[in-house]
Amino acid sequence: MDAIIECENITHYYGTTLIYENLNFEVRQGKILGLLGKNGTGKTTIINILNGYLKPRSGICRIFGEKMENLTPGVKSRIGLLLEGHIQHTYFNVQQIERYYSRFFPNWKKEAYYELLKKLKVSPTQKINTMSCGQRSQVALGLLFAQDPELLIMDDFSMGLDPGYRRLFVEYLKEFAADGTKTIFLTSHIIQDMELLIDDCIIMDYGKILLHQPTSHIIENFRRFRFSADRDSMAPDERFWHTERIGNTWETYSFATLEEVTSILSGQGAHDIREEKLSLEDAFIGLTGKY
């Protein structure tokens, strides 16, 4: 399998504020990769760098082997881009925007667009700027499906969507990627529903990648442990994430098994250690902290 997206040693600052240092990752063909992180961890910045809309301080990204600032029209036609907030040319109406984009892509699938729009209660001549956020997101998604790109890059597609629309979006994307030839790179700060969709997770923290693992690996192995201990602090251990005391009980997160956790914690006077399985959202909180 080929790497569709490669980022090497990306370092970027806004002014003097470090955004990342030496960020490296790649996205392989057929994968759905989610770049998850809290607000302000630079998810949109990565998308911008990737598409050549931001020149990083140093480092290089390649899409389909081409450097990001000089993507050729050929490569651009293979990439579907969803901007943060489902931005589209909202002065068009539903028909006009389809007509506009259809000329650019030889494999344009008009039906895919109109099929998606059938579900919305909009007339073909309704202007996009009179639509709700959810409806606009469907227009943007419909256009991407009609384009039928090999790589979809989506910046925070869940932002501003009702749970229903969000679920709809996820289901359509799953279907879109079903045959395994499509690659999707998406960012999100809402983790709900994401485990249904993404194969791999990159979890971002301020300035760095916390974790880059298959989603299944996280769901299967990352656990929350609650325990009691009569002390004010626990010794730091790199196998534990965000150990903290809530009332009289303690909680911590770890990829370690219950046996390993018990053996480490017992030495510090912990007792009543309980293991809890986690959803992706809980795991995300465990990894990034609540604050």
Partner: peptide, 18 residues
């Protein structure tokens, strides 16, 4: 102005043309 609102110019420049 519409191109610069929400930085739509990104969409325009992303079109498969030089």
């Amino acid at each position: 102005v519409p191109e610069m609102q929400n930085k739509r110019l990104k969409l325009t420049l992303h079109l498969p043309l030089p």
